[in-house]
Design a protein around this nucleic acid. Structure first.
Lengths: 197, 197
DNA sequence: TACAAAAACTAATATGCGTTAGTTTTGTTA
DNA sequence: TAACAAAACTAACGCATATTAGTTTTTGTA
C-alpha cells in the first residue's frame, strides 16, 4: 500500500478525529464510547485501534491542535504595527471565526480538557495561562497608552475571553442574524459598551 | 428518631448534595463515581441510597435549584421601577454573586446539565431558553427607550451571559483583586466598554 | 432497659467500558 | 497470480460502574 494517500486527501485517522470531536462535544468525553465512535466512522470498535493509539490520544490531539492555532495567531497579532484597540479587535474576531469554523474542536478543547492525562493536562493549562498573560500585557499597554480605560486588565481579559467563548450557544439563533452583524455587534459591545453615552 | 433534625441544621442529604456538587464540578458527572462521593461523605457507597434515589437525582436537584434561583431573581428585577440600565446592572451583579457564592452548584448547572435524563433535560433547557427570552425583552425595551445602542439584542444577551459565566475561571486571581473591583469593572466593561472615548 | 426506626455495613449482580489477541478480508504492488 | 501489508473482523478479558438485597449497628425515645 502506498504511503501517500490518494483519492480524498483525508486519512481515516482524520475522519476518526473529526467524528470524535463531534461525539465528545455532544456527549462529553467520558460518556462518549469507542463503540459509538466506531458506529459514526462505520467500523467495529477494535478497528479504530489500527489508526489511533487510544481514546485519550484523541482528546490530546483535539485539544492541542486548537491551542496551537490560538497561540500562533496571537503571536502574529502581537507583531502587528497597529493600535492596541485594533489588536484587541483582531483577537476578538479571530476567536469568533474559530468558534464558528471549528466549533466541535474548540468546544471540546474548552470543555473536556480536564479529562486529559498528565503530563498533557499540565501542558495544556500552562499554554492557556501563558495565552492569558500575553492578553493581559496587551490590555496593560492599552491602559498605559491611554487608549483604554483604567480597569483591571485581568477582569478585562476574563470578560473578553468569556464573551467570545459564549458563541458556543450560538447555533440557536443562526438563522436570524448574519455572522457579520454578530461579529460587529459583539466587537462594539466589548469595546464601546451598550449604553448610549 | 425525631423527624426534626437537631444540632446542625443540615441533613445528611444536604451534605451529600453539597459534596456531589463539588465532585461533579471537579471531575464531571460521568467521571465522578458514587464510591468517591461516599468517601467524601465518609460512608460506604450503598449507604448513600438511604438518603438519595440515584446519581441522576443528585444532578437534577443541583441543576434545578440553581435554575430556580435565577428565575426568581429575574422576576423580581423585572418588577422593579428603575431604568433598563439599572436592571441590567442588577442582573449582572446577581450573576456575579451567584458565581462567587454558589460556585460548585452554578458550575455544575452550567456544565453538566447535558447529562440530565428526560424529561428533566427538556425542562431545564426550556427554562433556560425562557430566561434568555426575558433578558432579550429587557434589552429591546432599553433600545426602544434610547437607553441602549441599537445592537442586536440576542448578541447583547449572549455577550452578557457569557461574560459573567466566565467567572468560573476566577479563583486563580482571587488574591489580587477584591470582589468589589471585579464586579465594578465587569459592569463598566459590559455597559460602557473599555475604550477611552 | 426495651423497642423501633434510621442508617450503616457486606456481598453480590448486571452492565458497559477500553482495549488486546488472533484471524480473516481487502487492496496494492512485484 | 503470488505475496505482503493494511485494515477490517470476532471473541474475549479485566475492570469499574451504579445499584440492590439482606443484615447489622447505631440512635433516639417510651
Amino acid at each position: 500500500m502506498s504511503k501517500i494517500k490518494l483519492g480524498k486527501n483525508t486519512s481515516k485517522k482524520d475522519v476518526i478525529i473529526k467524528k470524535s470531536s463531534a461525539l465528545f462535544k455532544t456527549k462529553g468525553f467520558n460518556a462518549a464510547s469507542m463503540r459509538e465512535l466506531a458506529d459514526a466512522v462505520g467500523v467495529e470498535a477494535p478497528s479504530l485501534y489500527n489508526h489511533i493509539g487510544s481514546k485519550s490520544e484523541l482528546l490530546q490531539t483535539i485539544c492541542f491542535k486548537v491551542a496551537n492555532e490560538f497561540t500562533t495567531q496571537l503571536t502574529e497579532t502581537e507583531n502587528k504595527k497597529c493600535s492596541i484597540t485594533d489588536k484587541i479587535e483582531l483577537i476578538i474576531r479571530f476567536h469568533i471565526t474559530m468558534m464558528l469554523d471549528k466549533f466541535d474542536e474548540v468546544f471540546v478543547a474548552n470543555h473536556e480538557w480536564k479529562h486529559l492525562q498528565e503530563p498533557f493536562l499540565s501542558n495544556f493549562l500552562n499554554q492557556r495561562r501563558n495565552y492569558e498573560k500575553r492578553l493581559v500585557a496587551i490590555i496593560e499597554e492599552g491602559i498605559a497608552k491611554k487608549e483604554l480605560k483604567n480597569i483591571n486588565p485581568y477582569v478585562a481579559v476574563l470578560t473578553l475571553l468569556s464573551a467570545v467563548r459564549g458563541l458556543e450557544f450560538w447555533q440557536r439563533h443562526k438563522k436570524n442574524i448574519s455572522i457579520k452583524v454578530l461579529e460587529d455587534d459583539m466587537v462594539t459591545h466589548l469595546l464601546k459598551g451598550i449604553t448610549m453615552l
